[in-house]
């Protein structure tokens, strides 16, 4: 799996895909979607799809791409190798979403939450397969948020496709298990080969599992914290684990859309309320304050009384 | 402590050795009556007003430091006659007689106002706003309202010219200063320029004088 593009620039997203087997263009196919790295506070989240002709599902099952959660990293690598060897009838594609992209999406003014990001990424991968000529007739995917809403969304987007949204889909449907393998292997590689843009000096890379409830991960977060800049971009700033540490130990930072009256949220935090439209037009002025000539206040210029 | 400031290079010119470098000082703002910050250059040859570009939610990175105060200070030359005018008017109200300048420009709240008298050309321009008498080698001054209004009128005319050259929006429409339109629009009249310029000049003179200037 060649992640060199993402290794070079791990600030955005990166798409990878296998060549499309000819048989997937000629026959009806089923497609599975799964994700890797949803829960951790560190590293990217990866969405993966895997597809094969309906007629070859038995062959896919024979590869024994079981529930990937029970497998070790080495076992996942081995299974991915098997999928690669089955390239005459199995195709895959991945979207790697960097922690920076996740953080900025969740924290920008028009909030783009993780579920929406997940849905859109999944749908974009299905569309990619269709655009590449894969004859997708069935899609299987695990639930992300309310199952019925996700199913409806997918059905509206792909009316010609039979969509099945089911909890634990990776243990029910081999094509989802296969997608899970691809996604997890990609995340494993991305994390292992992560290039920190920041100069972290002597910081040890012993961050544990990367999950928020791992004490080693929390300790590492505390150690790598910069009071002004927060964390390296390896960290998902939008995770409450990260925000709590910033709350306690970073300097207060206020943005234009910070919550009204708040003392100031830390580097990562922003208010969630929608600001009044009026707030964009006028700065509040004390009743006794004399307003200067429009030349000055239109340009944001004011008299200085003190340095 | 540090601030970010844009000023003409001449502010920090040091001709020869001198201990009288540029000085920030608080003076009486002739319009508001409150303290405001001004700058005298080396040897107080020139007066500058200090304004700040100030929007909410800004800070600075300066090299390897962070500065909370996100203002950008701007220093621009200012005619010291505006500052002296306040004291001339005050002296006229209180005494109504000819006095030496160093007895007119006195302020217990702002003792550095005496530095205004060092400004180059101040004395040669005082006649625009005063009547003068010379007794022996000493000059005596008295505020002249009519002369002052004539001088201020010239200031307004100069300001109108500058507004036109600078294509400043003086019309009634509210428009973003970063919006570049083809022109002022057909609804802008000469009166709008004069009204705008009067308003700008009024930022530098007492309210009563501004009202008189408006009538003039």
């Amino acid at each position: 799996m060649d992640l060199s593009d993402f290794e070079r620039d791990n600030t955005g997203s990166c798409r990878l895909s296998s060549p499309v087997p000819e048989v997937c263009r000629a026959e009806d196919c089923c497609l599975g979607i799964d994700e890797a790295g949803r829960g951790p506070v560190l590293g990217p989240m990866v969405y993966g799809i895997c597809f094969c002709p309906l007629s070859r599902l038995g062959d896919l099952e024979a590869l024994k791409v079981a529930d990937s959660k029970t497998l070790s990293e080495a076992e996942r690598e081995r299974l991915f190798g098997k999928l690669e060897q089955a390239r005459d009838f199995v195709g895959w594609a991945l979207d790697i979403l960097s922690p920076n992209l996740i953080s900025t999406s969740m924290q920008r003014r028009a909030k783009y939450n993780l579920n929406s990001l997940s849905h859109d990424t999944a749908m974009a991968l299905v569309q990619l397969a269709l655009d590449q000529g894969v004859r997708v007739t069935q899609v299987f995917v695990d639930t992300v948020g309310p199952a019925d809403k996700y199913q409806q969304k997918l059905k509206e987007r792909f009316p010609e496709v039979e969509v099945t949204v089911r909890p634990k889909a990776d243990s029910l449907f081999p094509v989802v298990s296969a997608a899970s393998i691809c996604a997890k292997v990609a995340r494993d590689h991305a994390v292992k080969r992560w290039k920190f843009l920041e100069d972290l000096k002597d910081l040890k890379m012993d961050y544990g599992s990367g999950y928020p409830n791992d004490p080693k991960t929390k300790e590492w977060l505390s150690q790598c914290l910069d009071p002004v800049f927060g964390f390296p971009q390896f960290v998902r700033f939008s995770w409450s684990t990260a925000q709590l540490i910033l709350d306690g130990r970073a300097v207060p930072v206020r943005w234009e859309d910070s919550e009204e009256g708040a003392g100031g949220s830390p580097a990562a935090g922003r208010g969630s309320g929608t600001p009044s439209l009026l707030s964009y037009f006028a700065r509040t002025q004390a009743a006794t304050e004399r307003q200067s000539h429009r030349f000055f206040h239109e340009r944001g210029l004011e008299t200085v009384a003190d340095l | 402590d540090q601030w970010v400031l844009v000023a003409p290079e001449s502010v920090t010119d040091l001709p020869g050795k001198t201990e009288n470098g540029p000085v920030f000082t608080r003076l009486h703002n002739p319009c508001t009556g409150e303290a405001a910050l001004y700058l005298f250059d080396t040897n107080a040859q020139q007066l500058f007003e200090v304004k700040a570009f100030h929007e909410d939610y800004h800070s600075w990175f300066i090299d390897q430091t962070v500065q909370h105060d996100g203002r950008l200070l701007l220093v621009t030359p200012m005619d010291p006659l505006f500052m002296v005018l306040y004291y001339l008017i005050k002296a006229e109200k209180e005494q109504g007689k000819f006095q030496p300048l160093d007895q007119i420009v006195i302020d217990a709240d702002f003792p550095s106002c005496s530095m205004l008298l060092q400004c180059a050309k101040l004395k040669s321009f005082l006649h625009h706003v005063t009547d003068e008498k010379e007794i022996g080698n000493k000059k005596f001054y008295k505020y002249n309202k009519e002369k002052t209004l004539k001088w201020l009128n010239k200031k307004v005319d100069q300001t109108v010219r500058a507004l036109k050259i600078g294509n400043v929006n003086v019309g009634p429409r509210v428009q973003s200063t970063t919006f570049i339109s083809g022109g002022q629009g057909s609804d802008v009249k000469e009166e709008d320029y004069i009204r705008y310029a009067h308003g700008l000049i009024s930022e530098y003179i007492p309210k009563e004088l501004s009202e008189d200037l408006a009538k003039y």
């Binding site: 920041e198 | 430091t65 962070v66």
Partner: peptide
């Protein structure tokens, strides 16, 4: 000039996290 208010005066590891770009 930053688009946020940082309530602190003091050292900041600017060059560790930012590189200038034109």
């Amino acid at each position: 000039l930053l688009p946020c208010e940082i309530r602190h005066n003091g050292p900041a590891a600017v060059s560790r996290f930012f590189s200038p770009a034109i």
